[in-house]
Every structure is written in C-alpha cells, then in structure tokens.
Amino acid sequence: MDTLMSGQLLFAALVSGSLYALVALGLNLVYGTLRLLNIAHGDLVMIGAYTAFWMISLFAIPPIISLVLAAALCALLGWAVYAGLFRRMLAKPELAKRVEANSLILFYGISVILQNLAALAFTSTSRGYQYLDTVITWQGISMTGNRLLSLGVATAVCFGALLFLRFHLFGWGLRAVIQRREAAQVVGVNLNRVQLLTICGGFAVAGVAGVLVSMTEQITPFMGFPFTIVAFVVIIIGGLGNIGAGILAGFCLGLVETYGIALTSPGYRSILIYGLFVGVLLVRPEGIFTKAVRS
C-alpha cells in the first residue's frame, strides 16, 4: 500500500499522463476540424523520436532544439498530406460522403508506408540515447531531468493550446469550425486556412511528443501504433473536439495506467489500454461523438 501512496508513483503518472494528453491533443484537433480519423498519428510520434535520435547522435544537437525541428518536419508532412490527398478527397462528393471511413483507410495506408519506410531506412533495431538522465531527488521523489523536462514541455504545450484557443482570434475560428462548420464559414472563417493550419499544428504537436518520448524510451519503426490507440482512448473518453476535456482525460489515463500497473504487473499494460479502448467504445458507442459529428 505504501508504494501506492508515494509521490514517486504520482510523478510517474503525471509524466505519462501529460504525454498522453499531448499526443491526443493533436489527434483531437485534426479530427475536430477536418473529421479525419488519423490512424497514422502515432507514426508521427515515431518520426519525432527518430528526428531527436539522429540529431543528437549525428550532429550532437540536443533534444531541446530537436523539439522545434521535429515540429517543423511533421507540420510539413501535414501540409503535404492535406494538399496532396485530402483536398482531393474532400473535393470528390462520393468520397467526401464517407469522409471518416475513407480517411481511416487512407491514413492506415499512410501509416503502413511511414512505418516501413522507417524500417527500410533505419532498420528495425531499437535505438536510444542518453540525455539529462541524472537522478534528482526532491522530497523523497527520485526524478530524472529528462522526465521533468518531458512533463514540463508537454504540460506547457497543452495549456498553451488551451489559452490560444480561448484568447486568440484564430483559436476562436478553430473552435467555431469544430462546433459548426457551415455556420463558421458563413460568419467569415476561412475554412480552408483553418483546416490547413490545424492539420499542420496537430501533426507538429505529435512530433513534439515524439521527441519527448525518445528521451526515455526505445525508438523503433513500429513504436507509433500504441500511441495512436492511447490517443483514441483519450479523445473518446474526453469527447470529440472537446480540447480541454481531452487534456484532462489524458492525465486521467496516465493515472489509471500507472496505478493499474502498480497493482498488477507491467505485462498487463497492453491489455489494460486495449481493454479500456474496447470498453469505452462499447459502452458509449456513439454517445460522446454524435453531438459533435452532426453537421
């Protein structure tokens, strides 16, 4: 029981919770504004992780700077995907009619391509590097610098996004598109611009998350999919397009996961995550989603 009450476990829960909130934030933004189910979201995390790894091992560029590079790289990818594929798809009525199902299959194709390109280019060997891994002890809690940095950056980006949505004019436009697409257009929101910038932003956030993950975990071409699943669990719990609740749900999942594993064993991690995923979808099949999907 002692371990359950310790600050150590709470710290671990917050670190993974903030990361989940961050990964889900990107997915939520893209789904909310474009109705695209990005099943390749986790692979962007993988790309961010590889960016950090190659930057530090080839050019000795620290992950702090890679954060910006990975964000830019993923944003560029977002632009390419939007301009190359989805503008085309959204323009075709017979495809746009079933945007969500079609986008899911399309992104699955993209995911497979990204994973295997990474495997081809970097081999399947798992990689890792050391950065800020000295242990700091505070109030009896042992923390490593990289985990503290991860917690800090993830939390800052999440709350930055919230503030941006609340106070910046573009953020208002974005929320308007999430809530009422057509009405937003009527009052003068440039839909195309909002969609393009959101997909770039959503992808960039995933890249940032990837850099953070790479500081503490092994990097492989196939590391992404679990993050996609986690992000889906989070946005289903939090509610589609509901950015604030999604961030809260991310932290909740971190708590549930960390304490769940502490009570059982790490071998149950995947079962717990997939179990939650299936459970949430079964219990609230369309409940949370329908409200926002209606247009």
């Binding site: 594929l85 798809m89 399309l106 194709g109 497979v112 391509i113 295997n116 390109l117």
Partner: peptide, 19 residues
C-alpha cells in the same frame, strides 16, 4: 518492407482514384 509500402500505396491510389 517494400511489399508493405506497395500495399499501402496501392490502397491509397485505389481509394482515391478507383473506388
């Protein structure tokens, strides 16, 4: 890996152009 890439590309092309 190349086989999987071809699989993914074919899927995308068919969804978009040959529904």
């Amino acid at each position: 890996q190349l086989y999987m890439i071809v699989l993914g590309l074919t899927l995308i092309v068919f969804i978009l152009f040959v529904p």
